[in-house]
């Protein structure tokens, strides 16, 4: 099933209700849930990658300068990276409404 509509008829479901589109979780833009976002202090960051590993969304990657950065399309602002960071270089900044 190439395009799974939001409200498929029973005849339109894949066998066993499988999800046949790989990586379809990315269609769910969890960044909408965010009220705070992580900001890295590059002066303190040692680029250890702990935040990359711990991010439950898998949305922290490496930017062009070689520092970790969150993809704000998916970052839910959960704060786990802030909690886990060894050097306490990440802080939460309120999103403007």
């Amino acid at each position: 099933m190439a395009a799974q509509s939001a409200q498929p008829k029973w005849t339109e479901l894949a066998a066993g209700t499988a999800i046949t589109v790989p990586g379809s979780a990315r269609f769910n833009r969890t960044g909408d849930w965010r009220s705070v976002r992580p900001v890295w202090d590059h002066a303190k960051c040692i680029r250890c990658g702990v935040c990359v590993v711990y991010c439950p969304e898998g949305c922290i990657g490496w930017n062009a300068q070689g520092y970790p950065d969150a993809d704000l399309e998916y970052c839910k602002g959960c704060g786990i990276c802030v909690r886990e960071c060894w050097t306490a270089c990440i802080r939460q900044v309120e999103e403007e409404v």
Binding site: A14, G16, T17, A18, I19, T20, V21, P22, G23, S24
Partner: peptide
Amino acid sequence: DAPRSLGP
């Protein structure tokens, strides 16, 4: 090689 999810 042809990923899909079973049991969502």
